[in-house]
């Protein structure tokens, strides 16, 4: 028994990032809006200024992103990833890049041909969650982060599942 406990404790050290839930990201006080980098090159030591890593492979962030995606009416143009007024997100074509910070930039800055700029209206953490969900739609994240069916009418599941 004791050995099992030790194993369990050891496992807990490597606790699953995929299941982590960060409700209160960053300091709640005012902070500058993140900028979008055009290059990964930078002086000095590498820093993770973009802060996206915590969201991209996290199941809960994807799920929250899905909620925001529906709530902020991304569905209106992109449907459940299939596109409509806006381009499809579930295909392999990414006009403005598929990397997290590129999608972040697309949401924050807006793009020509109708993508509005949400800069200043959606907090950074929420944008990153949207990015995580959009990337899950494009199957760019590990399979375990893909959302299953929703409790809404419509497609059983916009992404994967039902394999």
């Amino acid at each position: 028994m004791k050995r099992l406990v030790i194993v369990a404790l050891l496992l807990s050290i490597a606790a699953c990032d995929r299941e982590a839930r960060e409700y209160r990201p960053g300091p709640p006080t005012a902070s500058p809006a993140p900028f979008v980098r055009q290059t990964p090159l930078q002086p000095g030591a590498p820093t993770d200024l973009l802060g996206s890593a915590a969201y991209q492979e996290n199941r809960w962030a994807v799920s929250e992103g899905q909620r925001l995606y529906n709530g902020f009416n991304c569905v209106g143009c992109h449907a459940n990833g299939g596109g409509g007024i806006g381009p499809a997100l579930a295909d392999r074509k990414w006009k403005y890049g598929s990397e997290p910070d590129q999608i972040f930039a697309t949401i924050v800055e807006g793009r020509a041909e109708g993508m509005p700029s949400f800069g200043g209206k959606i907090g950074n953490a929420e944008v990153w969650r949207l990015v995580a969900y959009v990337r899950a739609l494009g199957k760019l994240t590990p399979e375990d982060t893909w959302p299953s069916r929703t409790d809404d009418i419509g497609e059983a599941s916009p992404v994967g599942n039902g394999q």
Binding site: R21, R24, T29, R67, I122, G123, A125
Partner: peptide, 19 residues
Amino acid sequence: VVDPQGIKPGALMPPNNLT
């Protein structure tokens, strides 16, 4: 308004960065 997650962690209202 500034820190809803400090009062109701997990609530759907995000923190607001206001001057």
